[in-house]
Design a protein around this nucleic acid. Structure first.
Lengths: 168, 168
DNA sequence: GAAAGATTGTTGTTGACGACAACAATTGCC
DNA sequence: GGCAATTGTTGTCGTCAACAACAATCTTTC
């Protein structure tokens, strides 16, 4: 956050008026980026920060973060998957997935069952409660996507998804 | 990492052959994403991971990470800036910038000078060594951008920059 | 059939990173 | 001059990725 011209900043009036401390004019408003502009990584990073924060805010009422959402979605679409499979598919460390599942299991959204085919692994399923919850999460996620459309434009969002389809 | 079809994975042969442990076929190769496809945030996250790793690898020989590069670039383009100004411009916590500058100052790339206009703040400048170093960093960064072009296509990269220009 | 090697889930450590809170020094406003 | 605000700094907390090590289990191989 503390972005630049992005969304509603914390300064309603341009110039910030007087009344507080130093800073003749609002500092760093016209700092040249120069070489930074034109770097794909920088733009993507800033956008990613924005989009994640909107996701977190939009799904805030149900307390679901992007990674949790992706885990639930994959399990919901592929019941019985092992932790290894989920981790591999989402590019998450399996060590990290352990904590994620601990949290989701405490909330009664996911269930770990000992697999009978491979007793090392756990078969992952959504609970009944998890199913209905995920349905709600998906509605909120769709709302979040509409925010993205409102931010960058419907056409541009579609373009973006097309360009980055190979990374999904 | 541990992406999917992204760059050179750690498995040269498709199917991974036998010779090791379990997994009849390489697990999680055809796991349905379904609902995850079509989420801008997910695609952007995966892309951002890829692009940062390529940046880190390409600038690995000089040991410069994306954030460090952005700090050096801004200071180089706007000598005399305060830490507050840099932090605000890049969306970095000023507390975080302290450590970043500590590191860059130890490496003799940046110099903190007590500002005479405002004795609370530090004026930031590149050292002579920092100038020449940054020139090299920029060449490597340009090489990184070429990797991005090779990955998603020249046209698509330009599209991306245009779409996300508002976040820069 | 048994040993050797690999995989799965788990725990723990490390380091980068963002969000906050508190503090001394300094500045601007009244 | 006094008070509020800003700047740089330090420290804490929580998230997250990258590793390493371990027990249990499976596959391969002899």
């Amino acid at each position: 956050m503390t972005a630049n011209a992005v969304q509603a900043d914390s300064r309603p009036s341009p110039r910030k008026r007087a009344g507080n401390g130093a800073a003749p004019r609002d500092v760093a408003d016209d700092v040249g980026l120069d070489a930074l502009v034109g770097h794909a990584g920088y733009a993507v990073r800033r956008f990613q920060i924005w989009i994640f924060q909107d996701f977190i805010k939009t799904l805030g009422e149900v307390d679901i973060r992007p990674t949790q959402y992706s885990v639930l979605t994959v399990i919901g679409a592929n019941p019985g998957l092992s932790q290894m499979a989920v981790a591999k598919r989402l590019g998450i460390e399996r060590a990290r997935l352990v904590h994620l599942l601990d949290s989701l299991e405490q909330r009664k959204l996911v269930k770990r069952t000992k697999s009978k085919e491979d007793r090392r692994s756990h078969a992952l399923h959504l609970t009944a409660q998890g199913e209905t919850a995920l349905a709600k999460f998906k509605r909120l996620a769709a709302e979040h996507e509409r925010h993205v459309e409102a931010k960058i434009g419907k056409e541009n969002r579609a373009q973006l998804l097309r360009i980055l389809a190979g990374f999904t």
